[in-house]
Protein backbone atom coordinates (compact mmCIF):
# COMPACT_ATOMS: atom_id res chain seq x y z
CA UNK A 1 0.00 0.00 0.00
CA UNK A 2 1.00 3.62 -0.39
CA UNK A 3 0.20 6.45 1.97
CA UNK A 4 0.40 10.21 1.97
CA UNK A 5 -0.58 12.41 4.85
CA UNK A 6 -1.69 16.00 5.06
CA UNK A 7 -3.62 18.18 7.42
CA UNK A 8 -7.04 19.78 7.04
CA UNK A 9 -8.10 21.85 10.04
CA UNK A 10 -7.83 19.71 13.17
CA UNK A 11 -7.66 16.45 11.23
CA UNK A 12 -4.74 14.46 9.91
CA UNK A 13 -5.76 13.09 6.51
CA UNK A 14 -4.28 9.72 5.61
CA UNK A 15 -4.66 9.00 1.90
CA UNK A 16 -4.28 5.28 1.29
CA UNK A 17 -4.04 3.48 -2.01
CA UNK A 18 -3.68 -0.12 -3.15
CA UNK A 19 -5.12 -3.30 -1.68
CA UNK A 20 -5.86 -3.76 2.03
CA UNK A 21 -5.57 -7.53 2.24
CA UNK A 22 -4.08 -10.23 4.46
CA UNK A 23 -0.63 -9.41 3.13
CA UNK A 24 -0.72 -5.60 3.34
CA UNK A 25 -3.29 -4.58 5.97
CA UNK A 26 -0.69 -4.22 8.72
CA UNK A 27 0.72 -1.26 6.79
CA UNK A 28 -2.47 0.71 7.39
CA UNK A 29 -2.32 0.08 11.13
CA UNK A 30 1.32 1.11 11.13
CA UNK A 31 0.56 4.35 9.25
CA UNK A 32 -2.19 5.18 11.76
CA UNK A 33 0.16 4.34 14.60
CA UNK A 34 2.76 6.75 13.25
CA UNK A 35 0.17 9.53 13.17
CA UNK A 36 -0.81 8.74 16.76
CA UNK A 37 2.84 8.76 17.79
CA UNK A 38 3.08 12.22 16.23
CA UNK A 39 0.21 13.34 18.48
CA UNK A 40 -2.62 13.12 15.96
CA UNK A 41 -5.82 11.77 17.45
CA UNK A 42 -8.34 12.90 14.84
CA UNK A 43 -7.75 11.03 11.60
CA UNK A 44 -9.57 11.02 8.28
CA UNK A 45 -8.72 7.93 6.24
CA UNK A 46 -9.23 8.76 2.56
CA UNK A 47 -9.78 5.41 0.81
CA UNK A 48 -10.36 6.83 -2.67
CA UNK A 49 -7.31 4.95 -3.95
CA UNK A 50 -8.15 1.65 -2.23
CA UNK A 51 -9.82 -0.73 -4.66
CA UNK A 52 -9.90 -3.85 -2.49
CA UNK A 53 -10.39 -4.60 1.19
CA UNK A 54 -10.78 -7.91 3.03
CA UNK A 55 -11.45 -8.80 6.67
CA UNK A 56 -7.74 -8.31 7.35
CA UNK A 57 -8.17 -4.68 6.30
CA UNK A 58 -11.23 -4.33 8.55
CA UNK A 59 -9.23 -5.82 11.39
CA UNK A 60 -6.48 -3.21 11.07
CA UNK A 61 -9.08 -0.42 10.86
CA UNK A 62 -10.91 -1.67 13.96
CA UNK A 63 -7.70 -2.08 15.88
CA UNK A 64 -6.62 1.48 15.00
CA UNK A 65 -10.07 2.86 15.84
CA UNK A 66 -9.99 1.24 19.27
CA UNK A 67 -6.56 2.74 20.01
CA UNK A 68 -7.80 6.17 18.94
CA UNK A 69 -10.88 5.78 21.12
CA UNK A 70 -8.56 5.05 24.04
CA UNK A 71 -6.87 8.41 23.35
CA UNK A 72 -10.28 10.15 23.12
CA UNK A 73 -9.65 10.45 19.40
CA UNK A 74 -11.55 9.39 16.32
CA UNK A 75 -11.14 7.99 12.83
CA UNK A 76 -13.54 8.82 10.01
CA UNK A 77 -13.55 7.73 6.40
CA UNK A 78 -14.10 9.18 2.96
CA UNK A 79 -13.85 8.10 -0.65
CA UNK A 80 -15.29 4.59 -0.36
CA UNK A 81 -16.02 3.09 -3.77
CA UNK A 82 -17.05 -0.22 -5.33
CA UNK A 83 -16.40 -3.35 -3.31
CA UNK A 84 -14.81 -1.33 -0.47
CA UNK A 85 -18.18 0.33 0.03
CA UNK A 86 -19.92 -3.08 -0.12
CA UNK A 87 -17.57 -4.56 2.48
CA UNK A 88 -18.14 -1.60 4.84
CA UNK A 89 -21.89 -2.09 4.51
CA UNK A 90 -21.97 -5.86 4.98
CA UNK A 91 -19.64 -5.76 8.00
CA UNK A 92 -21.56 -2.99 9.75
CA UNK A 93 -18.55 -0.65 9.54
CA UNK A 94 -20.64 1.79 7.49
CA UNK A 95 -22.92 2.24 10.52
CA UNK A 96 -20.13 2.18 13.10
CA UNK A 97 -18.00 4.94 11.55
CA UNK A 98 -18.72 8.35 10.09
CA UNK A 99 -18.42 8.28 6.31
CA UNK A 100 -18.07 11.25 3.96
CA UNK A 101 -17.65 11.84 0.24
CA UNK A 102 -14.46 13.88 0.44
CA UNK A 103 -11.70 14.61 2.94
CA UNK A 104 -12.80 18.25 3.07
CA UNK A 105 -16.32 17.15 4.12
CA UNK A 106 -14.89 14.76 6.71
CA UNK A 107 -12.62 17.38 8.28
CA UNK A 108 -15.42 19.82 9.09
CA UNK A 109 -16.40 20.45 12.72
Amino acid sequence: MEFTTNKIGGYAVLEASGRMDAVTAGEFEKACGELMDAGETRIVADLTGVDYISSAGLRSILSSAKKLRGMSGEIRFCGLTGMVNDVFTVSGFAAMFKLFDTAADAAQD
Partner: peptide, 22 residues
Protein backbone atom coordinates in the same frame (compact mmCIF):
# COMPACT_ATOMS: atom_id res chain seq x y z
CA UNK B 1 -22.81 -9.09 15.66
CA UNK B 2 -22.41 -6.50 12.90
CA UNK B 3 -24.64 -4.08 14.81
CA UNK B 4 -22.28 -3.80 17.79
CA UNK B 5 -20.53 -0.52 18.50
CA UNK B 6 -16.82 0.16 18.43
CA UNK B 7 -16.27 -0.61 22.12
CA UNK B 8 -18.17 -3.90 22.05
CA UNK B 9 -16.72 -5.24 18.81
CA UNK B 10 -14.10 -7.92 19.07
CA UNK B 11 -11.25 -7.52 16.57
CA UNK B 12 -11.58 -10.26 13.97
CA UNK B 13 -14.15 -12.88 13.04
CA UNK B 14 -15.49 -11.06 9.98
CA UNK B 15 -13.81 -13.15 7.29
CA UNK B 16 -16.34 -15.95 6.98
CA UNK B 17 -19.20 -13.46 7.18
CA UNK B 18 -17.76 -11.58 4.20
CA UNK B 19 -17.28 -14.83 2.26
CA UNK B 20 -20.88 -15.88 2.91
CA UNK B 21 -22.24 -12.46 1.95
CA UNK B 22 -20.14 -11.94 -1.15
Amino acid sequence: DTGAGLDERPVGGLGILLAVEM
